[in-house]
Structure formats: structure tokens, C-alpha cells
Design a protein around this nucleic acid. Sequence first.
DNA 1: CAGTATCCCCTTGGATACTG
DNA 2: CAGTATCCAAGGGGATACTG
Lengths: 135, 135
Amino acid sequence: MKPDHFEVTPACTAVHHLLARVGDKWTVMVVKYLGNGSMRFNELKRTIDGISQKMLTSTLRGLERDGFVTRTVFPTIPPRVDYELTDLGRDLLVPVKALGDWAIKNEQRVREARARFDAARAGKEHHSPFADAAE
Amino acid sequence: MKPDHFEVTPACTAVHHLLARVGDKWTVMVVKYLGNGSMRFNELKRTIDGISQKMLTSTLRGLERDGFVTRTVFPTIPPRVDYELTDLGRDLLVPVKALGDWAIKNEQRVREARARFDAARAGKEHHSPFADAAE
DNA sequence: CAGTATCCCCTTGGATACTG
DNA sequence: CAGTATCCAAGGGGATACTG
């Protein structure tokens, strides 16, 4: 156990925990697709290109654990499992979408700021006058 | 045909990138404290107890690069560096705060969902229904 | 004071193989 | 089909030491 004694408002902790949960590599995408209605496991896997089985599973488990999605198993052969947003999940979608709209709206400004910063940093380099690769 | 509540492709990428930036371990706290006005490096370091120099530096650099904070150096001895939110940074604070409010408002619901999930999972265990690590 | 530079551990996440 | 189990690489992040 860690004796970290934060004198930080509970707000920060709450925000950080939510962002840490929602800010991982795949959660937003899963939630967004489920926002359109319930989907099966492989349906999600096919739709979200690039996601591995392991990550889809663990992402869904996490969302299920936190009450954002429901997992419904149909004991057929082959098995079928449906995932669907709960009310809480749909509710979460509102502020997340707001952040998403902000992101889309300001993407360009961030990109420009980044370009300025990198250009300034490259200009200050005296060791290597070459263009250094930004990501 | 499939219901299409919102388009997925550009939104997901933008949202994920923003969340990945803002969802790391310290960014929210730094931005939040800077929301109260400009602060010096060590002032931030003292206030955000638990953060290392390395992480404060890299967090601030990232925020600066993306145009969310400005870094002002006073060439005195000892040196003084002020950090302050830009307009973009303040603007970002709006949807982030919305998410924060959601987090605070629904913290309990998430906690309860988690407890239910863990209880159900513990119930399915073949072995000890005893103490599972509660965080 | 405000950083850089290292070392190193731990987590995240991808690839692959196996199962009910 | 819908997972688990295992291995492994990359990078985030902490502790510490050094610097202008």
C-alpha cells in the first residue's frame, strides 16, 4: 500500500479516475460504438479496427465493472454475447461527447501550437541543425 | 439499417488523443491549479504533493507544446518561471470541468456498480469467498 | 530555483495459442 | 463465437544525482 497523502480536492481525484478509465486506448471507441445500440463481441472487434481480443475483453470488463455496459450471454451454440450501454453509460456519453466536440473544434489550434513549439525547439538546437523528426 | 446517432471516425481519434493527453496521471491536476492563476514551478510542485520534478516538467512541457499553457522565464538569479493557462487552456477547462462534475455526481453509482460486480465475481469463485483486495 | 540526465520498475497493450 | 492464458516489447513514471 502506498502512503501517498494527497492534499488535493476530491474533485481532482474523481476527475482523474474517470479520465484514467475513459482515457485509455480503446474505451472511448467502444463506448461510442455501443452508443448506437447493442453489439456482439466480434461485431465490436470487426468494427473497431486494430483492437486485439485481449484489449476488447478487458475494456469491456472494465466498463461492465463500472456499470457503463451490460453483458448479456445467450447460452446457445455457438455462444452469443451482447453488450449494451446502461443508463449510466449513456449518461456518461454526454460529457464525453462534449469533450469530443471540443476536441474536433480545436484540433487545428492544438496542431498549430504543436507546430510552433516544435519549430521553436528546432530553432534553438545548436548541436544538430537538421530537421528532427516529430512524431 | 443501423441507427447512426453520431459519426464515429474523426470524433474517436480526436477524442482519444485529447483524453490520452488529459487523462494521464498529473495533467488534470496541473491544469486545475493553473486555472486559479499563474504559478511558479516549485509552487506547483509543492501544491501538487506527490508529483516528481520529472513528471511536473514533462507534464508542463506537454501542455506548453499543445498550447494549453505559457511558460515565462525571468532571467533572474535565482531563476523564476511562471506557468499560466492560455485562452485555449481555459477553454479546455470548460468541457473538462463538465466531465469533472459528472465524475463527482456519479462517483457513488460507479462505486456501487463496482462493488456489485466484484461481489458477483467473488461469488463465482470456487475458493475463498474472503477478503479480495478492496482498493 | 528550475530544471536535465540516469537508472529501473511496473503497467499497458500487442501477438499468439488454447478452450468451452 | 467468445473468450482465457501466456509471453513479451515499449513506454510511463518514480527515485536519485547533477547543473546553470
